[in-house]
Simulated scan of single mutants.
Amino acid sequence: MAGVLDSVNQRTQLVGQNRLELLLFKLKGQQIYGINVFKVKEVLQCPKLNEIPGRSGVVRGVAHIRGGTIPIMDMNQAIGRSPLEDIENCFVIITEYNRTLQGFLVRAVERIVNMNWGDIHPPPMGAGKEHYLTAVTEVENRLVEIVDVEKILAEVSPVNETISAGVVEDGLSERVVKRHILIVDDSTIARKQIQRVVESMGIATTLKKDGREALEYVHGMLEEGKNPYDELIMIISDIEMPEMDGYTFTAEVRAHPQLKNMFIVLHTSLSGVFNAAMVKKVGADDFLAKFHPDELAKRVNDRVLAITGEDLLQEQGGND
């Protein structure tokens, strides 16, 4: 698989153009799966795995790769199926999610395809609630299932969602009783993680699963005669989403004269310097790497103080 992830700089040019590249792979059978290339650090033949006591059944072992120890998860087992066999002849996809490295054991790695996010669609309605797909697409008339890796990781190693003491100002929610936060993310798990943190602060939320749905929502507010600035505290949006990615969503909001000053934080498991550059390019107000409840809560806390501070000062002045 040497060279499969070459030309990373070229791939970064796709970001912000509503495009992505998928690394295609197989598990058992002929079904094709995909993962965004930006999440992938390396692809290699399965190295020697060392058993670890008390491990999750999904974790087949750990591997020592490039000076680090990385857990290797069986992708087929992680999505609720039987373990892969003959793992010495399998491949490992090394990924970076939520600031950590992990490996996923797969049967075979095929190739990389260039896609438009408009050709990536949410899972079918009949897929049920327990599926492990974040999206689907077609490549050469064959269905490609894009795995919700964040769901897998949340089940294998749940993250702490508790906000530390002192991060949130006392009485914060009382300042924004009639306002809410729009959360946009294609991963059900990621949406719920953000929602739980925000609502634990006493602040209401509205959830949308992709950029197009979120854009239709804010446009609908205008059509109903509502002022989005009076309704929304901020928008927290993922970057990688079917139909319309977070960069394109942000650019569309900025291009609308009645929405252009909306406060947008891009919140994603993607990492790399190109994100900071793209945040500036599309005009987002901030970028936050997933997932750290204190950092998320602080962004929300600071935004609430920013939009209510003047009102609070006026109230205090009137009471003197």
Rank of each mutant, 00 (worst) to 15 (best):
T137V: 07
E88W: 02
A135K: 09
G171N: 05
L143D: 13
G128E: 10
T95A: 10
A127H: 12
D148Q: 09
S173W: 01
L105G: 08
I93D: 12
G67E: 10
G67P: 11
R81M: 12
G103L: 02
Y97G: 02
S164C: 01
M115F: 06
R107T: 14
R99L: 02
V136N: 08
V92Y: 07
A108R: 15
D148G: 06
L101K: 14
V92D: 11
F104L: 04
V62T: 13
I93C: 12
G61Y: 03
I112A: 01
E138N: 14
A78D: 08
M75L: 10
L84S: 01
E155K: 10
E161Y: 11
I152W: 07
N116W: 01
N98G: 04
I120Y: 03
A135G: 11
G166V: 00
D170M: 01
H64A: 12
T100A: 08
V139E: 13
S164Y: 07
G118I: 00
E145I: 06
N114T: 12
C90W: 04
V156F: 01
V147Q: 10
V159A: 14
T100N: 13
G166H: 04
R60M: 05
Q102K: 09
I72H: 06
I79M: 06
I146G: 04
S157H: 08
E150W: 00
I94W: 10
V139H: 15
D170C: 00
G166N: 05
I112Y: 02
L105I: 06
A78V: 05
S164N: 11
V149A: 03
N98C: 05
I65F: 06
E140F: 09
N98Q: 11
A127R: 14
A135H: 08
I94M: 12
L172T: 07
I152Y: 07
V62R: 10
I152F: 03
V147P: 09
K129D: 08
G103W: 05
T134S: 11
V62E: 09
V168R: 02
T137L: 04
V106C: 06
L101G: 06
N141T: 02
M115W: 05
H64I: 09
V156P: 06
A135R: 09
I70K: 12
A135W: 09
S164L: 02
G68D: 14
V156R: 04
R60N: 09
L84F: 00
A135I: 08
I70A: 01
V59F: 00
L101E: 14
N114S: 12
V92F: 05
S157A: 10
E96I: 10
N76A: 03
G67N: 09
I112F: 00
W117Q: 09
M125L: 08
G128V: 08
E110H: 14
I72D: 04
P71L: 03
T100M: 11
I152K: 07
A63G: 12
I163M: 07
V147E: 07
Y132H: 15
K129N: 08
